[in-house]
Design a protein around this nucleic acid. Structure first.
Lengths: 338, 338
DNA sequence: TAATCTGATGTAAGCGCTTACATAGCATAT
DNA sequence: ATATGCTATGTAAGCGCTTACATCAGATTA
């Protein structure tokens, strides 16, 4: 079955039915320009009677606005994703914007074309390393509104970005492990190079060590990759080679899960034999066995703010260039606290 | 900063640069109609040189196709959502379609306008009860391609639908609890009325009871609502009133989690004091304490198939009217198996 | 009273594409 | 040699809206 072309209702039919011009119908729909209440009523009645729906493409072509925002992510695989998407979807809808989503995970990120951009959105939320800096530069140059989420602006571009206190969060976690729990040898499962959250979290880890006069030991660092399987692998290697740490700090909860599984396979008790902490506080964290000590990141809130800012930028308003949301230590059993 | 209108590159500039007409450029881009290889090469060179991107709105207006599909969900809250979205996004992108997402959770579902429909998509994936039957009827009448996901077609409409073997899955679970584990009193945390998965799962539960000559006891049924908080509440009530069942079958894993928490609060041991099983096998299930026995539903696969079918319908091809994917019992500790 | 302004509406020119139709060149069939 | 068909390309008419500009009636001002 095909869309029935024959009796398609356009603004022209509405205008005729209401006995006004198309311009007036448009004014009523978009609430632009002055219209007599009675005229508006007639138009609304016509819209209702004919069951008219404005064609988004025609609107977009004429007004040069799509009324859509795009969300670019690398992959839809982490638990992280769900609260982020909820925040974005809800806020976009509340702002009257459609939401287009695309992941760049499967494709060669260095090579255009990218699925979302100036030709099909009014602006973009760019998550972490979903888009290469080169393309961000290009979009910035042509003036496409953008907000970066969990990523900071390339130097001198002043693209608004929203992220969480990664460094401070990691710093506090390690401070806690050292000061409250008495650990000195703290292994670190770092995130992927390309991901900025990973960079700051590692820095927080290093700063805390330095502040406590603990030398940084590269042997205590391995790749967690923000990924369960990768972390599993790395921790298994550590175990085989006799890791000397008494606690593992995974740079995100997904890698903490991988670590937890590897440790259980090696029949190490958590936290008695080795403690384990993560970062993000995804929903799973509280339900793990033992429940995971972690750093709570306000993922959904960051997403909401990013969309609010994007909408403002699209409307030509000024926004905060850098929004850093606070993180919070969440103590559960996996760190040996109780 | 605004999009730079002055030197916008359109198909006209490309045509001039390449020394051909706009029709030829269009033919090259869309691979419609015959074009000499050398001509095509010139056009590609022009596109490259000018960094031309076709305007989606203009394309849509002229061709009457948006090249976008819409996904309508009720709420983005369950773990269920992530694998589903991944399946949909990946398949949509592979088919060259943009993906628009909207949830109808916050709004009054009975009342238009709906955010996604014939004016901004070529077709819709409608998840469960995200859209009232009335609107589905309207869209069907005007011929908008649709595929229903985890919901079956209204009578006589023959809208393709993709779902999982809910009834058989539930039936097998209860068969297993009765035959292998020896339970006779099996409490059931049912899903929300509006959700079709809930209906079939309950039916499977009832069928198994009947097949084993166990009378159906309404007192053993309470609302889980596919929701952690709701299940928590219901199970707490049960505990207060002295539930006589030795096992709880939660109609989905989210409600199983709520049940688990309520049971732990009541200091009941799982599975020694009371066993617990769920449905879906969300990622969390394996990590709970104890790991949750459940029915695995191929959520991502169902999503992929739904998009594949939708794309076929959009292209005017025939598709299966009803796709039922097999579910599978996943035995873990929470049922008292080991 | 004439001049001016304001509010309500209409007219029509695009927005940037796709595509039906026209055209032209050339090979093949008659 | 003319007719026929096919390939490659161009011309131009929209697609369904928005919006700059024009118009006109009535209110306000000098």
């Amino acid at each position: 079955m095909q869309l029935d072309d024959s009796n398609r209702i356009t603004i022209v039919e509405v205008a005729q039915y209401a006995g006004v011009s198309t311009a007036t119908v448009s004014r009523v729909i978009n609430k632009t320009g002055p219209v007599l209440p009675e005229t508006a009523a007639k138009v609304y009645a016509a819209i209702e009677a004919l069951n008219y729906k404005p064609n988004a493409a025609a609107r977009g072509l004429a007004s040069r606005r799509t009324n859509a925002i795009g969300l670019l992510v690398d992959e839809i695989n982490s638990e992280f994703f769900q609260p982020m998407l909820r925040g974005i979807e809800v806020t976009a809808r509340a702002s009257g914007m459609s939401l287009l989503i695309s992941s760049t995970g499967g494709m060669d990120k260095a090579t255009p074309p990218y699925p979302l951009g100036e030709n099909n959105t009014d602006g973009l939320i760019i998550f972490a390393d979903s888009l290469p800096q080169e393309e961000i530069l290009r979009l910035h140059k042509i003036g496409l509104p953008m907000v970066l989420l969990h990523r900071s602006s390339p130097p001198n571009l002043n693209i608004p970005c929203v992220t969480v206190e990664n460094k401070i969060g990691a710093r506090r976690m390690v401070d806690y492990l050292i000061e409250e729990r008495g650990y000195r040898k703290i292994a670190f499962l770092e995130g992927p190079d390309s991901h900025e959250d990973a960079y700051w979290r590692k820095l927080g880890y290093q700063e805390s060590l330095a502040a406590h006069n603990i030398p940084f030991d590269p042997k205590l660092v391995s790749l967690g990759g923000f990924d369960e399987a990768q972390a599993h692998l790395s921790v298994s290697h550590w175990v085989e080679q006799g890791l000397k740490a008494k606690v593992i700090f995974a740079a995100d909860d997904d890698s903490a899960i991988g670590a937890m599984i590897a440790l259980k396979e090696a029949e190490l008790r958590i936290p008695e034999d080795i403690a384990l902490v993560g970062f993000d506080d995804i929903r799973l964290a509280a339900y793990l066995d033992p429940p995971l000590t972690t750093v709570r990141a306000p993922i959904e809130q960051a997403a909401r703010i990013a969309v609010e800012q994007l909408v403002k930028v699209i409307h030509g308003e000024e926004v905060e260039l850098k929004t850093l949301l606070p993180t919070e230590l969440v103590i559960r059993r996996s760190c040996g606290c109780c």
